[in-house]
Computed example of a mutant assay.
Amino acid sequence: MDAIPTLDFAAFRTGDAAARGAVAQQLGAAFERYGFIQLTGHGVPQPALDGAFAAAEAFFDRPEAFKRLVQDRRNNRGYIPMFDSALPGQKPGGHEAFSVGHLTRPADPALRDLPFHAETPWPEMPGFRARIEGCYAAMYALSQDILAAVALHLGVAEDFFVEASRESYSNMRVVHYPPAEAVAEVTDIGVRAHADEGLITLLIQDMNGGLFVQGPAGDWLPVVPNRDAMVINVGKLLRRWTNGRYQAALHKVVNTSGRERYSIPLFVHPSYHTRIDPASLVGEAPAGPEFEPIVAGERVYANFKARRVSWQEAEKA
């Protein structure tokens, strides 16, 4: 049976050139076939992950009124209430979340005014911010190693993505899914099928399962929880930049565990003004209209605005 592969990333982090090259080739092959992989040996300290999950449980256990004190709907920062992701004609996602902006903000005032670079409103909870930001920093450092491996696989300089991400608008979400039966009167999905917008996403999930990826044959493959692994997937920008060589697979969440589920995705993006052009990464002309050059932030911001309008329309309906 087909399955999302697992790869030990330790050799890329600490090995010699040959070992690093071998890991990069395996990573790239997984991205070409599935757009998803699970990485062990990722080097993110377990206490950082455990601390973030503990912070998540403590926050979502607070009353709704407390959580809404740190809600910034305009910028999609802070608390995101249950069922907030409704789109016209679709059921909402059965989850609530806390959205965190990138740890550093750009110097350009025009960029700082965009929702992508908005400041995060933090709750008055001792240790919450420190735990979440500590996890963010560790996961983001790993993301740069993963992108270095991607660059090696694609035959460009290992710092290719570093140069493209000097003022990254990456962001993290801390997500809580009640058991499916608890939200069954409203929805039957935790998160509807979608592909992520950015370069790559790093995800830590608890042991309750519920994440499914659409495989090459169109069937839904479970991403079986592994305490020692981190889930990595390709986003739309990297698919476009590779001229379709990498897959940005659809994935969804259905929490049928009967327990509370928590996950923490880090969405890794380049700088707002980065030009996404297959010629610059894989040395090829665009394979079709969907691969024509774009400016990363402009495209993602246009999609963001369209979704916000749809949510507002859904609320009025």
Rank of each mutant, 00 (worst) to 15 (best):
K91V: 14
Y136V: 00
Y262V: 09
A302G: 14
E64C: 13
G28R: 05
E290F: 01
V213W: 06
P106L: 08
Y140S: 03
A17H: 04
R299P: 06
D113Y: 10
K91T: 15
A148F: 01
G93D: 15
R129A: 00
L238Q: 08
R74K: 11
E313G: 11
Q25L: 10
G15M: 05
F36W: 05
L202Y: 01
P278S: 13
V224I: 14
A86Y: 03
R259K: 15
A182L: 09
F12C: 03
Y301P: 08
L87W: 07
A148D: 06
A3M: 06
L221R: 03
Q247A: 15
D188W: 13
E292T: 10
R166H: 12
V150I: 12
L202P: 02
E167D: 15
V268E: 08
D159C: 10
E181S: 11
V213Q: 03
Y79R: 01
R173K: 10
D196Q: 02
F267E: 07
Y79G: 00
N75D: 11
D219W: 09
A149G: 04
M172H: 00
E315H: 10
G28N: 08
F83G: 14
A180N: 12
H42F: 01
A137N: 04
L103D: 07
S310F: 14
F31H: 07
K316C: 11
P225G: 15
A193T: 10
G134V: 00
Q144E: 15
A110M: 13
V44Y: 02
A149F: 08
G218T: 07
F160W: 15
R308P: 03
L211E: 07
V231G: 07
H153P: 00
L7H: 01
A137C: 02
F98R: 00
V70T: 09
A10L: 02
L238H: 07
T120P: 01
T242M: 06
A3H: 09
V223R: 02
E292D: 13
A30T: 05
R227H: 14
V300W: 07
W220Q: 08
N243E: 10
S170K: 09
G51M: 01
P270S: 15
N171Y: 12
I294R: 06
D145F: 07
D108V: 12
Q312T: 11
L152K: 04
F128D: 00
G93S: 12
A314E: 13
L266F: 06
G288F: 03
A164G: 09
V100Y: 02
R240L: 10
R308C: 09
H42S: 03
A19H: 01
L203Y: 08
A314N: 10
G297K: 14
L49W: 04
H273L: 13
P265A: 09
L49C: 06
P63Q: 12
V213Y: 05
A55Q: 00
Y34P: 00
V231Y: 04
S143W: 00
G283S: 09
Y262P: 02
A296F: 13
A314S: 13
D145W: 04
S310N: 14
A29T: 10
W311H: 14
G51K: 00
G89Y: 07
Q26W: 01
